[in-house]
Write a protein that binds this DNA or RNA. Sequence first.
DNA 1: CTGAAAGCGCTAACAT
DNA 2: ATGTTAGCGCTTTCAG
Lengths: 340, 340
Amino acid sequence: MVTLADVAQHAGVSASTVSYVLSGKRSISATTRERVERSIEQLGYHPNAGARALASSRSNIIALMVPLRTDMYVPVMMEIAIAVATTARTFGYDVLLLTGEEGPSDVRRIEGSALADAMILMDVELHDDRLPLLREARRPAVLIGLPADTTGLSCVDLDFAAAGALCAEHLAGLGHREIAVIGEAPGVYERLTGFAERTLSGLRERSGELGLRLLHRPCEGSYAAVSATVGRIFDERPGTTAFVVQNEAATDPLLALLRQHRRAVPEDVSVVAICPDQVAVHASVPLTSVAVPAQEMGRHAVEQVVAKLAGRGTDEVVLIKPELTVRESAGPRAVPGDPL
Amino acid sequence: MVTLADVAQHAGVSASTVSYVLSGKRSISATTRERVERSIEQLGYHPNAGARALASSRSNIIALMVPLRTDMYVPVMMEIAIAVATTARTFGYDVLLLTGEEGPSDVRRIEGSALADAMILMDVELHDDRLPLLREARRPAVLIGLPADTTGLSCVDLDFAAAGALCAEHLAGLGHREIAVIGEAPGVYERLTGFAERTLSGLRERSGELGLRLLHRPCEGSYAAVSATVGRIFDERPGTTAFVVQNEAATDPLLALLRQHRRAVPEDVSVVAICPDQVAVHASVPLTSVAVPAQEMGRHAVEQVVAKLAGRGTDEVVLIKPELTVRESAGPRAVPGDPL
DNA sequence: CTGAAAGCGCTAACAT
DNA sequence: ATGTTAGCGCTTTCAG
């Protein structure tokens, strides 16, 4: 194993010089720097992570807690996780993957062992156990998601309320008056993750302003569940001409069912989705959608964490502005008695 | 920050005693053990990870390299990653998430910095750059997937050839004679990940033995691509009565298209999928399928890694035996002229 | 601009 | 069964 001392000897300088070449924390003459760098190269030196962490009390590791329940919008989770990992490397950090299974004690463990310099938490619940601990912690934390009380915490999330409003506006602009919302599975609402409710309230508020009638139904992602929900919606509100879907798993079944019901999309019914772009693009009818910007969220989270670790940066709630992409699933409302 | 010395003082013992209580590497009298444990509890002590790694040259971290391309069978990846993380914790290890973006140099970095004690690599290509490095490495590595040359390497994977054979057998047993295989996207074959080819060869071999006619078409996951592929298959082989799908994204489009073509599943056409159970269960017709046992693969990989780290365990290729679950998408071949 | 040296908190001989 | 102590490899004062 090659150590700093080996490099120092090989380059004919002292250990501290090598260390400073590496950290750039004091000025080094061009010649020594080059000599040291050559030695590092030649010997294939890599600083020992443990020693470095011990001496500097910085591990250069960011802990990422992902939700254990593997049932829900898994692709987004993975996308965020990967975005976090790649962005972190960009700043010289590695990422530790925690499942949050151990709950608050996991936070304590990381904090106590100094395994990570900071934490990023995904899919935080409105009243999460871990929040009090995070507020007390000496190490910075950033949440992806928005808890009920954000004081003393940094958060990054899509502005779901604005996303809801955007959907309402888009459909109103196309002349629609009766809209049905197919939401996340009931479990999501029960877990109080918040984002589903925020979407809904944005949707409701703007619908009110625009004079739209709204019907909301939570719905499991299975084909059967979507089928039942859609049937019910058409029974209760036969005049429904547009759907807003916020449930990755339900989009494909919804499109299939509309086809089965002999409703053309977008001629007879319009559909606007809130989902990752990938899902929207691959659907049987490319979906007009508001994207859940997974990559951007991961990147933002890391940037905030790094800023805090550098002393800059404060507690901050970043709500990413939603953008609606027009594809092929939403069009003008069919005017009764006007068969085109 | 609470240190080992603090605990020692509080408990009235020496530092080494505390260390040994923690590691169990030498016998401690019940009374001192209890005293020490109480002190640890009271002070909320957590061993410093860096110091421990430095002194013991073991970080208790396993590096997991996941593929960066976020386009392919992402849900399985996430499931494996989570299984790895939870299983690892079970053995006292944490998991470092690497994207493999940096390729071989990432392996060198981890190896050189002693950041992790071992590595697990997912989605390894047949002739992966990183394999030579892994063979030379002092630290154990386990692959999830099967490269061309496995000498000096431990691997865990589903026995895809057997999975292919199993599909052929099941369909043959139901009386089918002409089978079409909808495969992964062409890119997957080009990347030479191997598993798709292995499935195909198992499928071909057993089909030969059982006298089945086989048609194979790689296929993108988009609705349009599946549509084109299915159309082509029915043109070229109108007698096709069964499909084998190995492409998560294609299953739903396939079912929708068959419906559109007025072919009932399973009465007119049978479908057998090779995909995670979750996908099979949630499809519009619950799919008879061979599961990709993500959890089991993750668990096995960690167990092998831990065994190697403990000195037990050798290089070994574990091929998990596939299991076919009968659901509702495959049935007896419709006999022409027998309208039931 | 560079060196020397004192730890960082823990483990693992080596003692007893 | 327990204590003493010498490092592990690096960062960072303190000196020059």
